[in-house]
């Protein structure tokens, strides 16, 4: 037993040397990637920010009435309209001459699908809002239905594997390219496996005047079917395989990437998740789909130039998560 009886925890919690915008006691599942990402985003954004949150897991698990896990001004209205609410808040703050920043956020369903037109409008009108999409690759809050972000061949309750199909038939929507095509100053992807990179991108986006977008890959132990302890491992493998490229786009052009020092085969990533279990059956279709996913990963690597240079890059997939003794990560 290693608990110190003499350090009062509640007091200690108040004295943490970081900004706490997102508190304990929320109802997210064990090992929830979205909860972790939201904590990291609020932590990096600091106190002078207001939030608009779309309907979805994050909204639900943080606000069991009359409680709230938020310590920042936070508002929820509908599934489809976080970007519109964010845009309205920004306009109101601007009218009052205030410098408070706005973050709008939602899940992949709320961003790629139902909230997409509100998002596009917000970007097109040039609102000074950071939009964060927590991508757990399905409608998790209502029971794991497929979204346009669900990867090809993944099983959800509405894209089962069976005689007809090997999971989802369609491809994952390339949201960051679509967003960047609005010619906005900054759009980036990030992963909970690389918190330092994620934090840097939140700060970067908030420092920019104009609409910015951050797409965060957040594993979901329940929906993806993996052990709650594996959230970071799986998120890391998504990046190391090339399935989730970590990139930055400015005005639509590639401005930065996280190179992959040692590319891992996609099967290392897929094997850990029940939503891809059917791909390891003795079935010609399964073998073909595995190859298909590998080709998609290779295509990402080629497209964004994720292969490492000759020198090991301290900010590549192996270097970006290096820890140090006594070092704030």
């Amino acid at each position: 037993m290693s608990q110190d009886k003499d350090i009062p925890l509640a007091e200690l919690r108040r004295a943490q040397p970081r900004f706490s915008g997102f508190e304990a006691g929320h109802r997210a599942c064990l090992g929830c990637g979205e909860a972790l990402a939201a904590r990291l985003v609020t932590e990096s954004a600091g106190p002078d920010v207001v939030y608009a949150n779309a309907t979805g897991c994050l909204e639900v698990f943080t606000t069991a009435w009359p409680e709230s896990a938020w310590r920042v001004p936070w508002m929820h209205s509908l599934f489809a309209n976080a970007a519109a609410i964010g845009a309205g808040m920004e306009a109101a703050l601007k009218a009052q001459g205030r410098s408070t920043r706005v973050i709008a956020m939602g899940g992949d369903g709320g961003t790629f699908d139902i909230g997409f037109q509100a998002l596009s409008g917000m970007l097109e009108r040039g609102h000074n809002v950071l939009y964060v999409c927590y991508d757990n690759e399905a409608y998790m809050n209502t029971g794991i239905q497929r979204s346009s972000s669900t990867p090809h061949a993944a099983v959800t309750t509405t894209s089962p594997a069976g005689r007809e199909r090997m999971g989802k038939r369609h491809l994952k929507k390339d949201i960051v390219s679509i967003v960047a095509a609005h010619h906005i100053p900054y759009a980036a992807t990030a992963s909970v496996a690389y918190p330092a990179d994620l934090r840097k991108k939140v700060r970067r986006a908030l420092a920019i005047d104009g609409p910015t977008f951050l797409h965060v890959h957040t594993p979901c132990p329940l929906g993806w079917g993996h052990d709650s302890a594996l959230t970071i491992e799986i998120a890391r493998l998504a990046v190391q395989t090339g399935l989730f490229p970590v990139i930055e786009l400015e005005r639509g052009g590639v401005a930065g990437v996280m190179p992959i020092r040692e590319q891992r085969p996609v099967s290392d990533y897929l094997r850990l998740q029940n939503r891809f279990r059917h791909l390891f059956a003795d079935d010609v279709r399964a073998r073909e789909e595995l190859e298909h996913l590998q080709a998609l990963a290779d295509h990402n690597i080629e497209r964004y130039g994720l292969r490492p240079g000759h020198e090991a890059d301290p900010l590549d997939t192996e270097g970006a998560d290096t820890v140090k003794r006594g070092g704030v990560r």
Partner: peptide, 27 residues
């Protein structure tokens, strides 16, 4: 423990708290 902050950074439930003083287990 090398006080790298990893557990403090990665806990989704904000259930790891950092202490200035060294806790009794040396971490």
């Amino acid at each position: 423990c090398m006080a790298c902050d990893n557990c403090w950074t990665l806990c989704p439930d904000v259930a790891v708290l950092k202490t200035r003083e060294v806790a009794s287990d040396g971490s």
